[in-house]
Amino acid sequence: MHSISATFRAGIRAFLPIAVGIIPFALISGIAAMSVGLSIPQAIAMSMIVFAGSAQLVAMQLLAEHTPMLLIILTTVIINLRFVMYSASLADHFAQLKQRWKWLSAYLLTDQAYALAISLYQRKPHMHYKPWFYLGAAISMWITWQIGAVVGMLVGQQFPASWQLDFTIPLTFIALAMPAIKNRRLAAVALCAAIMAGATVMLPYKLGLVLSVLAGVGLGLYLEGRQA
């Protein structure tokens, strides 16, 4: 990786194997958009402007329940708070970039692009052209996501409701959640958030989501404080 373009291409190559996991998720986001009654232009606008799968899926469930706009946006902030963590972790590696490239890098930030880039930076802390590896992976991710979402929108209208494809949404989240429980403290946080979510499910507009996240984070901080 001795040039910008070679480093960029390495980013694309690193992304290819994980595209297999992205495509169904993107398809589902397109299918879900149709199932809550968005038009295709609205669904494409959401996919391009927001470009955050988990938040989009939850927003669509909230839209179906006629939730006030501000609450949907608050929920979006909670779900996407993790991007602040990624942003901080990548910041030093992107320090040399011009401002407009920083903006593009930020727009393209996803769980997958972050994970690919940071694992390479940890293995090769002194490599050159660091941001270009990230951009190669992140742009490939963006293209894969948008194509998958549009295909999902087109085929989403063909499936009968009896297939219950909406169940793929919690299944996708289950697939993401289990590997994230890496130690006992995270398991306790997960259990606490799960119980709280079960207990508050009757509250309108998924307010229970906000409460459950607060409870989980609170417990995590308490357990960490007790051990320190």
């Binding site: 909670i78 959640a177 958030a193 984070v217 901080l221």
Partner: peptide, 12 residues
């Protein structure tokens, strides 16, 4: 602690 709490709050 945010990502895992968010995921559980969506799934349950």
């Amino acid at each position: 602690f945010v990502p895992i709490a968010v995921l559980m709050a969506i799934i349950v």
